[in-house]
Design a protein around this nucleic acid. Sequence first.
DNA 1: GTAAAAATAT
DNA 2: TATATTTTTA
Length: 254
Amino acid sequence: MEISVYGHPVSSSGDGGDASDRVTEWEVGLPGDDDLTPLSQLMIPPDLASAFSVTPAAFRTVHDVYRASHATLSNLRRLSSPVAPTPLPSFADGDPLVIEGDEPPGSSKPEGAETEESEDPSTRSSKRARVVWTPQLHKRFVDVVGHLGIKNAVPKTIMQLMNVEGLTRENVASHLQKYRLYLKRNEGSDHLFASTPVLNPPPRQMVPVPIIGYNPYGGGGGFHEHQHQHQQGEWSGNMFDSVNSYPRHVHPSQ
DNA sequence: GTAAAAATAT
DNA sequence: TATATTTTTA
């Protein structure tokens, strides 16, 4: 069976040229998420939202994704939410995200602009493609995590509540790991200021690590200003933090 | 070539 | 499940 994102499969054969091992990327977009996710708006400051709003495919056809997503979504609106332990955000029953499933033939899919979809059906059906955490998808993720709280915010549950077909538990777990790292980093900065002024005197001018923002766990997530890192471009290259990078192990020896 | 993201392994 | 490491992508 064919698996494709409702958006479009993006073959990542930029320079490799290895058709046999081509990787299909599923860009998961969420067309009308904004008006359907009031909760996230309450909990996520605009700045932070922007900070998270990063898409790896800046050069790519973002519009394509959105449009295709919309098209497919229209055909999938009838989907219902399977699990709902807690009051789900509106998207759960009104705007299901879909990664898996093929698109209707008649759908207007503007793909093919810059992207060549030349992957074999066998390839994309056999192996899961790399999931691209678009701002929309990430938003949903954050939303779910926020609603679950720390105790229930585990990969499996998150995955279920997100209700995104094609999204695996591993995908969520991986993302969750990074997300937690991101959160931890912010908390650390907070503590630094609150309880360790002597050991780690903050710079006179300003802290390079600004964001504190939304804290899905602690509950009292405060947030403050941050410098103009990314003003308009949602894609800065770093989804979680554009200033610094978290404990990145060593340098890859590749 | 490097950094970040995602996948995979432990 | 959580974390560490590796691989892949931008």
